[in-house]
Computed example of a mutant assay.
Amino acid sequence: MKLYKVDAIVLRSIECGNGDKLLVIFSREHGKMKVMAHGVTKPSSRKRGSVQPFTYTKFLIHRGRELDSVSQCEGIEMFPFLRADLGIISYASYLAELVQCLIPEGEQNEPLFRLLLETMRLMKEREAEILTRSFELKAAGLMGYLPVLEACAHCGEPPAGSLFFSAETGGVLCEACGAGDPRAVPVSRGMVETLKALLNWPQDRLRQLKISPADRKRIKTLLYDYLKYYLERDLKSASFINRFAEEP
């Protein structure tokens, strides 16, 4: 069939000239896709609002020889609050970039799609930072990168004594294993329990989680280093978040 329908979240849009945009979308049906949207930047285009980043849109796609194109589209949820606050924009951009890095093109992953959509919805009322930390852990788990938190990632025994975390080894280390790993970083038991809560609690319950500013900063660094190790790349949006957080 030359035409097919998808419900998708717009992750990125790239100007191509002549009013065209290349869209990177994450669809419920086909996973990550690249499609061309012709003429959408023109003032007369009815598609303009529905192809903006962080928009949940119903697309009618025309199958092409090399690249599929948008035949029709209608916004389902526009999420205007994601564009109204610089802090929330930075977290939404980070989630979009993380999804682009995590999932190969054309690979369906409906649990990850639902997680992204729910997280975007909840950013209107709850802390974007904690939602993002939880998304990092849950998304890593859905893609097979879940860190080991219940046992020592090296020896498999219940973690005893002082605890460490190693991205290279894949999670929490006991005192004996952590002492022998020069790249492992010390973590408190409270921080490990917080990581478990971020992983296991539903997204809509996370506002009940109390995390000190110091632990927030350490967890952010720990999870980013963990993801960077497995993705083998830096994420540009994370640098923007850090710069924004440091401004008065």
Rank of each mutant, 00 (worst) to 15 (best):
I14P: 04
E105S: 03
E125N: 15
L112E: 01
A153L: 00
K34L: 13
V185Q: 05
V70M: 01
S44L: 12
Y94I: 05
L223F: 10
I9L: 15
E168F: 10
S93M: 04
K42S: 11
E129Q: 14
V40Q: 03
R12M: 06
K42Y: 13
T194I: 14
I89N: 04
G17C: 05
D20M: 09
F164R: 06
K21D: 08
V192L: 11
K32N: 01
K32A: 01
Y226G: 03
L95D: 05
I219T: 03
Y145H: 02
I241T: 07
L209G: 02
M1G: 07
Q203S: 12
G190N: 08
A184Q: 09
F54H: 07
R83G: 00
F244H: 09
A179Y: 11
L142T: 01
H30D: 11
I9M: 12
F54K: 08
A8D: 06
F244L: 15
L60F: 07
L95S: 01
L3Q: 12
A128P: 06
I9A: 06
T221I: 08
A167G: 00
K217D: 05
M120Q: 08
T221V: 13
I25A: 03
M143Y: 07
Q52C: 09
A160T: 01
E129F: 05
F165A: 04
L146F: 04
F79G: 10
